[in-house]
Structures are given as structure tokens and as C-alpha cells.
């Protein structure tokens, strides 16, 4: 879902940067407030893992592939969507400048879609669901729907840019990311969260493991 430079006119690309920047600043503020010597290694390992897994495209049929985005996973582990914004910003910076994956002018839109929209939607869906369905199902649905919503937002941006027609864009992006989100995002996120909960529950933010949602 990495939008290249040529897909959005410069003026609109700047608007998405202006929308994304406050979230980037808030994510740095989050880091200053929440990160300590215990959490920095976890954040760094997650960021590296998410960069690597984004290089692993999974075939979904119809001559199309997709990969995990990871914002929801990071947000659930740290108990804040700001963590997802921070990690995705770092990953997208390296992808854009070093590997030409996603544009530079369009990086604001990419941070907005994959970091902010997928992370916030997925994380808060997880929060709402976890007391009813448990952590496993909630992380699966949150990650899946978070990715789908960000793909639909991307289709709307493509339509405003005059790149895609709106309805065809929504239908195609929606269909592809419904499938990508199920396998690449939902399943992987649920598996990783379950594995961490079983082996190192202390790594998960207390708001996640405490099913009543009350911070210890």
C-alpha cells in the first residue's frame, strides 16, 4: 500500500504531510513519556521485525500480493496507537529514502494510512473487543479491519488525486486488502500477541493483559 510519488499531486501530498506531522510529534512525545531502558530494546526489535516482514509479500491470488503493516501489533504490545505511528514512521522513512518503497512527497500519506489510520482503528477496535472476545480474537479482528480501513482511506485519497475512480478504487482496494488483512495482518498479529502473552506476558502493556481494562 506504499503510495509512490507519482500517484498524488504535490499540493495534496503536502496536505497529507501536514495532517501526519502532529501525529508524528505526538508519537515522539509518547516515546519521551513512556519509553524506558526496558522498553527501548522491545521497540527496536519490533521495528526491525516489521521492516523485514514488510519485504515478505504473500500471494493472495488474482495476480496480487500483500504484506503485513504491523501498526496494530505494535500498538497492542505497547498499549498505545502512538507506538504504531512511531514505528511505522521510522520504517517508512528507511523504506522511502533507501529503497524507493513509497514516495518521499507521499510519505505523509503513507504514514497517515499505515501508521495513524490502521493503528488507531485497529487498536481501538481491539480495546472494545478484548473484554468480550478475549485477546486472541480481538487482536485478529482489530488488525484485519484496521488494515482494511486504511486501504479504503488510501482509495479515497487516490480518488481525490484523480488517480483512481472512487467506486472502482474502493471496490478493488477493499477486496485485495480484505484478503491481505485476513492473512497478512490479522493472523500474524493474533499469533504474535498470543505467543507473547504465553511466554512473556510482562512485555504486554498492563491495559492489554488486564481483561477488565483497569490499569494496575
Amino acid at each position: 500500500m506504499h503510495i509512490p510519488d507519482s500517484f498524488i499531486p504535490m499540493g495534496q501530498a503536502i496536505v497529507y504531510w501536514v495532517i501526519a506531522l502532529p501525529f508524528i510529534f505526538m508519537s515522539i512525545k509518547w516515546a519521551r513519556k513512556e519509553l524506558d531502558d526496558m522498553k527501548v530494546p522491545i521497540l527496536a526489535a519490533l521495528a526491525a521485525g516489521i521492516f523485514a516482514i514488510q519485504a515478505l509479500n504473500i500471494p493472495i491470488g488474482m495476480g496480487t500480493s500483500g504484506h503485513m503493516v504491523g501498526a496494530v501489533l505494535v500498538s497492542i504490545i505497547f498499549g498505545s496507537p502512538m507506538a504504531g505511528v512511531l514505528v511505522l514512521t521510522l520504517v517508512l522513512l528507511v523504506q522511502g529514502f533507501v529503497f524507493g518503497d513509497g514516495g518521499i512527497t507521499t510519505m505523509g500519506a503513507n504514514i497517515l494510512n499505515m501508521g495513524v489510520i490502521s493503528g488507531f482503528t485497529g487498536y481501538y477496535l481491539f480495546v472494545v473487543l478484548k473484554n468480550k472476545t478475549g485477546i486472541k480474537a480481538a487482536s485478529f479482528v482489530g488488525a484485519w479491519i484496521g488494515l482494511l480501513i486504511s486501504a479504503l482511506a488510501c482509495a479515497v485519497e487516490m480518488s481525490i488525486a484523480g488517480t483512481f475512480p472512487l467506486v472502482a478504487g474502493l471496490a478493488t482496494m477493499g477486496l485485495y486488502h480484505l484478503i491481505i488483512g485476513f492473512i497478512g495482518e490479522g493472523l500474524i498479529t493474533a499469533i504474535v500477541i498470543t505467543a507473547i502473552e504465553k511466554s512473556r506476558p510482562d512485555l504486554l502493556d498492563s491495559s492489554v493483559t488486564n481483561v477488565k481494562g483497569v490499569r494496575a
Binding site: 506504499h2 509479500n57 488474482m62 500480493s65 504484506h67 486501504a151 478504487g169 486488502h177
Partner: peptide, 9 residues
Amino acid sequence: DPDGLESAA
């Protein structure tokens, strides 16, 4: 294979 966005394009 192209990713979702490229494939849609």
C-alpha cells in the same frame, strides 16, 4: 506479484 495498490492501479 504487484501489491494491492499497484495491482488496483
